[in-house]
């Protein structure tokens, strides 16, 4: 298993850098992920999306549908790509500390 140090914590990650132990996540880790992708400051809007994603994942064991994410956060897809350079699945989910989506998605 690959390892990566983020915000001073050694994390188990998959080959794309997604965290494998979601309970080790904290806000600094999200910031560190963002910085790696060139977003040096996480805004209120980032946190809205990250918190929604994370809470949804913790409650349901899976990331929400994009349409639901759009509806619940009020951000358009374009807006989500502006906030998260690699998009909701590859950036937002990763920064939220949840595993990469699999299974025909």
């Amino acid at each position: 298993m690959a390892k990566m140090e983020l915000a001073g914590v050694m994390l188990e990650v998959d080959e794309h850098g997604f965290m494998q132990e979601t309970n080790k996540w904290n806000e600094d880790i999200a910031r560190a992920y963002g910085a790696k992708e060139g977003i040096n400051e996480l805004t209120e809007e980032h946190w809205t999306a990250i918190n929604y994603l994370r809470n949804y994942y913790l409650a349901n064991g899976i990331c929400p549908m994009i349409r639901r994410l759009i509806k619940e956060t009020g951000f358009s897809l374009k807006k989500l790509y502006d906030l998260f350079p690699e998009g909701p699945a590859n950036s937002a989910c990763k920064w939220s500390g949840v595993p990469k989506a699999t299974g025909c998605v």
Partner: peptide, 13 residues
């Protein structure tokens, strides 16, 4: 489901 979707989540979705 390989997506990790449980029955309740499928219905909800």
């Amino acid at each position: 489901s390989p997506t990790g979707m449980r029955p309740a989540v499928a219905i909800d979705n």
